[in-house]
């Protein structure tokens, strides 16, 4: 059933579409009139100062946060209160967190097959094969039977990426995937992400790794105080930022 659905729909619409989206935390207006369209295969990099609402925005895309006004479509389905719809969308959207959030009581392999066997309902053997394939791709197949606590930060984040990929998502969300890592581990994670981008994965990535943004980004989004201030192709964004706030932010982040 799931396969038939996948094969049948080379969805021509956008992968993600946010239309006039607003969100409040109590009185606090976190997201103000967000409009963003992500095409299939597009790589969007989101940056902005701390507290500007970047995390909140991408967490709305798989409903870890609820928006209060406007519309949000993922792969043509609108996100509403409907639990079935939310589960269907979460199946197609992978998410990688700043702090990895691996399940500490399960081995790496068990982490990877949990979703496929219980959500995608794939036979265990097949799920293990897929999991080993992705571990191979993130270059740590030999760690399959270790527990997350026994791995380095960089290795843990690569496991987390593999865990999301095992669900065969159409869209991947990254929330500052490298900012909890030591400098020497950042590269190994970025390399995996670059490879993923080259394979054509649709990605929305919050990061301050501007080198990465330049290499793989199709679109740069700059947020400040809950608004999208500027949205531009990377060359234009870095060489010729239009908004003052973008200029200030870039001068700060690129100077050090």
């Amino acid at each position: 059933m799931a396969n038939a659905q996948e094969a049948a729909a080379p969805n021509l619409g956008p992968a993600v579409e946010l239309r006039h989206m607003h969100k409040w935390y109590g009185e606090f207006h976190v997201l103000k009139d967000i409009n963003l369209t992500v095409r299939h295969g597009e790589r969007v990099v989101v940056c902005g100062p701390s507290g500007s609402g970047k995390s909140t925005m991408i967490r709305c895309i798989n409903r870890l946060e609820e928006h209060q006004r406007g519309h949000l479509f993922v792969d043509g389905l609108e996100l509403t209160n409907d639990l079935k719809q939310i589960e269907a969308i979460r199946k197609e959207v992978g998410m990688v967190f700043q702090h990895f959030n691996l399940f500490p009581h399960m081995t790496v392999l068990e982490n990877l097959i949990l979703g496929p066997t219980w959500v995608r309902k794939i036979p265990r053997k097949e799920a293990i094969e897929t999991a080993m394939m992705y571990l191979e791709r993130v270059k740590i197949p030999e760690q399959a039977h270790k527990f997350p606590g026994q791995l380095s930060g960089g290795q843990q984040q690569r496991v987390a990426i593999a865990r999301s990929l095992c669900m065969k998502p159409k869209i991947m969300l990254f929330d500052e995937p490298t900012s909890a890592l030591d400098p020497e581990m950042i590269k190994e994670v970025l390399d995996v992400m670059i490879e993923l981008a080259e394979e054509g994965m649709t990605m929305v990535c919050v990061t301050h790794e501007m080198g990465f943004a330049r290499t793989v980004g199709d679109t740069m989004v700059f947020m400040d105080e809950g608004e999208i201030v500027e949205m531009e192709a990377p060359e234009e964004f870095f060489s010729n930022p239009k908004n003052e706030r973008t200029q200030l932010f870039l001068s700060q982040i690129l100077s050090h």
């Binding site: 798989n62 870890l64 979460r90 967190f97 399940f103 949990l114």
Partner: peptide, 12 residues
């Protein structure tokens, strides 16, 4: 974070 990771995998 454990809840969030599990939810983003689509678990009920």
């Amino acid at each position: 974070g454990q809840w969030e990771a599990a939810r983003s995998l689509g678990l009920k």
